[in-house]
Nucleic acid binder design. Structure first.
Lengths: 225, 225
DNA sequence: AACCGTCTTGACGCGTCCTTGACGCCGAAG
DNA sequence: CTTCGGCGTCAAGGACGCGTCAAGACGGTT
């Protein structure tokens, strides 16, 4: 869930943004002054800030600077002022985007998506899977056993990866052969036997009595943590 | 020096942007078509792209998507079209910002600064990486070995940089070729062999037995500290 | 026009990995 | 009790990928 902090002194704009954002699945915090915005940002740690420049009390630019002193959260500035100088000042103070009121909600949402997309660099996947016999680091593509690295060939790794990414689930031989060797190898079940044996020899404490790479006769294989 | 790739089919806009950007200390590459833009981006590795949507030939949105297929370089879209749908399409395709023509040069420059500022995150990552054989200064783009500077060619440096920025992680050959040479070189794995050999000859104590630039046969390469 | 550094391209030897077949074991079915 | 199919094991061949070297192409500079 993405948290958005909306800072605006006009109640109707706050309401409009709140309902629109909530309808899109965002979690919304509201602030009506710069001071409140800085407080809320510190406590609620939003993922993105939508900030009206024309605030009573402290200047909107000061709010940008106050935020930038300690966080890199994306800031989208709203303003009725269309003057070039205002835009430049806000952007150079650390804002990420500048939208002139009146704005279209669709555009604002798109700019919001663009801002949050930057924040989350990539689909971070579960990095490591641990068992009592070995550790699989999916991001670094390494396998450790008793602290020492175990070398796996590409095929061995692909096979282990598809099993480990579905812990506890039964994977059919068809599916394993398709994802590792390709669709035309669907019936070469002997490949699976050979490579499962190699993996067990490298990873299991007692390869003849596997505890983690389990055969389900006639159906497929299963990884157990 | 920040590299900017300007993509526009109108010569006068190219000229205007080129002179303005060059005057501010940017290094400017010019492209007048989408195809040329994708090629140039792959070879020159700009730090930010300014892209006109109204290109002859392939659509501007397609250029955004082509770039996003392999790079996260900031993209600022220029367009005469002010329609909300166009903005949303471009932003959701992966653009970072959308500026409507006619635009003010001052604002564009400010948005350019905002885009590049994001690209270089603060002091959160170590600018230098040290091993027992050599030291890589990522900020200064220099490599020291036994106190003396080692000269690297641009390609060698890019390769070393992408490896060193992910210590311990395995980087696939595809990813290395894409980030260093560009998306159309995905299968030229011999490049990797040649350049890894050069890097090892320059950096490793025993190039035939590398301790830091490690090959994972069939999968990719890995940097170990 | 000549030179230099850099990138590209091809060929070759070697080591590793994949493929393939044979064999024994075990449980289920006849 | 016998038969059969599925699974685990092992070993050998051939294919493939990697490291290495060197020559040619390319681009920028003098």
């Amino acid at each position: 869930m993405t948290r958005v902090l909306v800072v605006d002194d006009e109640p109707q704009i706050r309401r409009a943004l709140r309902t629109n954002l909530a309808a899109r699945g965002y979690e919304v915090d509201l602030a009506e002054s710069g001071e409140q915005a800085l407080d809320l940002a510190a406590t609620s740690h939003p993922d993105v800030v939508i900030l009206d420049l024309g605030l009573p009390g402290i200047d909107g630019i000061a709010v940008v600077e106050g935020l930038r002193g300690w966080t890199k959260v994306p800031i989208i500035v709203l303003s009725v002022r269309d003057a070039e100088a205002d835009k430049i000042a806000a952007l150079d103070a650390g804002a990420d985007d500048y939208v002139t009121k009146p704005f279209s909600m669709g555009e604002l949402l798109a700019r919001l998506r663009a801002a949050t997309r930057r924040g989350t660099p990539g689909p971070d996947e579960a990095p490591t899977v641990v068992t009592d016999a070995f550790t699989v680091d999916l991001a670094a593509k390494r396998v450790l056993r008793d602290g020492a690295e175990v070398h796996l060939t590409p095929t061995e790794w692909q096979l282990l990866e598809t099993l480990v990414r579905n812990p506890g689930r039964l994977i059919s031989q068809r599916q394993l052969l398709q994802t590792v060797w390709g669709p035309q190898y669907e019936r070469e079940t002997n490949y699976l036997r050979v490579y499962l044996a190699q993996l067990r020899r490298k990873l299991e404490a007692d390869p003849s009595r596997p505890k983690h790479l389990i055969t389900e006769p006639g159906m497929g294989y299963r990884f157990e943590a």
